[in-house]
């Protein structure tokens, strides 16, 4: 198990180094995107209007997060910056990785086969941020750089946030086809059958 500190945007080489179980801290820009950001960005891509996506996502870290925000004296401030459940994005994440070349997906609860395959193919990794640890995440925020698509509502908008020492995140899906969540779960399923038979 290795520990890394990476600055975004990250290169394919950096991502390929990561193995499941490694711990990663991030510096630089993180972009939030949950259900509606995925939907809108992929709709634009499907129409050949990728240039209308307001941020260049190549090499970037996409964070499954609906922050708590408040505008104070004309400036956005973040009060909550913990991860949301990534499983909701499973059906679209592989397309998102292919279209926008994001290298890191940060979230909680993990993702499945289709995303794992896309990460292997295009060189991306999934970083698990400990669920619910919003106060720690918020204290890693340096500033809100920008926000786009506010019409989607504040949790669903695309927030461009500068962070420092954001973590710990754990590599739960690497770019070599390994998925820590599905490994743990398949062992647990076997154990559960044995336990249930003995009741």
């Amino acid at each position: 198990m290795a520990e890394y500190r990476l600055k975004t945007p990250v290169s394919e080489e950096d991502v390929r180094k990561l193995k499941v179980g490694d711990i990663v801290y991030l510096d630089g820009i993180i972009i939030t995107g949950r259900d509606q950001v995925h939907r809108r960005a992929l709709e634009l891509a499907a129409k050949g209007e990728k240039d209308k996506v307001p941020v260049n996502l190549e090499g970037m870290a996409l964070y499954h997060c609906g922050p708590i925000v408040k505008k104070i004296d004309g400036e956005w401030k973040i009060f909550g910056f913990g991860p949301t459940t990534s499983a909701r994005m499973e059906s679209v994440e592989a397309d998102f990785i292919r279209e926008f070349k994001v290298r890191l997906i940060i979230g909680k609860g993990g993702m499945f086969e289709k995303t794992t395959q896309a990460m292997k193919e295009y060189g991306a990794a999934y970083l698990a941020y400990p669920g619910g640890t919003s106060a720690v995440a918020t204290s890693a925020v340096k500033r809100v750089v920008d926000v786009h698509w506010l019409d989607l509502g504040t949790p669903e908008a695309m927030w461009v946030v500068e962070v420092e020492n954001f973590g710990p995140t754990m590599v739960a899906i690497d770019s070599h086809g390994n998925n820590l969540y599905t490994d743990v779960l398949s062992k647990a399923k076997k154990a559960a059958e044995e336990i249930k038979a003995k009741f």
Binding site: M1, G21, G132, T133, S134, A135, V136, T138, S139
Partner: peptide, 29 residues
């Protein structure tokens, strides 16, 4: 387990930070 330890450490630190800074424990309030 090192991954489990890292998770639990982050959780315990989060409880402490939330209490001190008055930032909500989790963004899903």
């Amino acid at each position: 387990n090192p991954v489990a330890r890292a998770n639990l450490e982050a959780i315990l630190r989060n409880i402490e930070v939330s209490g001190k800074t008055k930032l909500p424990m989790c963004q899903d309030t």
